[in-house]
Amino acid sequence: MEGLGAYSTIAVALGVAIFCLAAGVYISWLFRPMNPTPVKLEPYECGEPTVGTARVQFRGMFYLVALLFVIFDVEIIFLFPWAAAFRQLGLFAFIEMLVFVVILLFGLAYAWKKGALKWQ
């Protein structure tokens, strides 16, 4: 649709989405009851008294997955323009990308062999 430029429209969309959600919270605030008690404010753990805090050191496994994701995500950013221009570039681009992808897949195979993908 014409009118504003595309990226200004996205900014408007962001504003409208936040405004609508905030309006919803406000309307809810007008109607809902509010009487928090100390027991209500406890974290819900199926009725058991909570033990310790939830701010704990978490498993390193998730960090490994995030690292792998970052590697592949960067590669995908590289792949998108390549794929869009693929028809004009032809065989040369295909072989170039083949080399690149195979190196990365070696990385994945290495991580796999090292047990980085093993969920325990």
Binding site: P43, Y44, E45, T53, A54, R55, V56, F58, R59, M61, F62, V65, A66, F69, D73
Partner: peptide, 20 residues
């Protein structure tokens, strides 16, 4: 931010699954 262990585990699992 919920300060609940279930929420923390659920959030971490969600994130790991979505990025995978």
């Amino acid at each position: 931010s919920s300060g609940n262990k279930y929420s923390l585990i659920g959030g971490m699992r969600s994130a790991a699954q979505m990025i995978s």
